[in-house]
Amino acid sequence: MKIWRKALDLNKVKPSRGQIEIMEDRCKGCRFCIEFCPKHVLEESKAFNAKGYHPAQAAQPEDCVNCGLCEMLCPEFAIKVTEEEKVKEVVRHG
């Protein structure tokens, strides 16, 4: 995307980063999360899960911006997106 007019606070504002957790055995391979992810973070895994579906997996986890669309779209309640800062806090303070 070309930015032709720079926002004044462009350097100060950091986009939120998300961490995706996928419960592979819940996934039924409907591909909703893969197709609708605005950042194309997810892809279909080559491996099978317990039920014989190809579950989704995070191919570019560093691109995730914590929008949570995949979590809301997932009909199987299999995806959880957490803000990276919160994950770090939990790791630090237990």
Partner: peptide, 10 residues
């Protein structure tokens, strides 16, 4: 797989 009811429930 592909049913939308789960999304609506969410």
């Amino acid at each position: 797989p592909g049913c939308g009811i789960g999304s609506v429930l969410h």
